Amino acid sequence: MHTRLNQAQPYVLGLFRIILGLLFTCHGAAALFGLFGSSSIAAGTWPKWYAAVIELIGGALVALGLGTRIAALISSGSMAYAYFTVHQPEGLLPIQNGGEAAAIFCWIFLLLVFTGPGAMSLDRLFARGSTERAEDHAPDRAPAVTV
């Protein structure tokens, strides 16, 4: 049973990353473009507009699995900043200050920094392609002689 779960782990992590990235992208799109019944933020407004840009671009990169660890680190930091500057002054705990989403996004993105993108990512596709290209250009080697 554990073997099957372990074999599925990269694919479940990849699916988790894709869904997380899409959810985060929706937050950015709502704030920047007034989508999903939201009003848009004026360009350059500190810090909300910049946070929305991070949400849109960071979420898209995470969803695609492109530069996942760096995009997740920046997204995590953005949510930590949002939590401590916007929510935490209203109360100590996320349940008291409405900061559950910021806290959860912060910790989940931080987890992706350490786990990586999982399966089905552009990061893995490009890494695999560069490995194959390096092998194609490697000089032929004579078989090792054993005595």
Rank of each mutant, 00 (worst) to 15 (best):
S75G: 14
L5I: 13
L93F: 14
A127F: 06
A52C: 03
L66D: 02
G99P: 08
A134F: 02
A51E: 05
V147N: 13
I104C: 09
T3S: 13
Q88P: 05
E100P: 15
H2E: 13
T45I: 04
G59Y: 02
R69C: 01
F24H: 14
T3M: 11
R17A: 05
G59C: 01
S78D: 06
Y83D: 01
M79N: 02
G99C: 04
L15D: 04
N6T: 12
P117H: 01
L64I: 03
R4M: 12
H137C: 09
A30P: 12
W107E: 01
G28W: 00
Y81T: 11
A42Q: 13
A102E: 01
W107F: 15
A138D: 13
Y11E: 06
L64T: 03
Y81N: 12
F114N: 00
P143Y: 11
R17K: 08
P10D: 06
G129V: 05
I70Y: 03
R4T: 13
Q7A: 14
G14H: 10
L92H: 10
A30S: 15
N97V: 02
A30D: 09
V53I: 13
I57T: 09
L61M: 06
A134S: 08
H87A: 07
G44I: 02
S76E: 03
T45F: 13
L32F: 07
K48A: 12
F109T: 01
G65K: 12
G99E: 03
T131D: 12
K48L: 12
W46N: 09
R4Q: 14
A8I: 06
A142W: 08
L32T: 06
Q96V: 01
T85P: 09
A42H: 08
C26P: 07
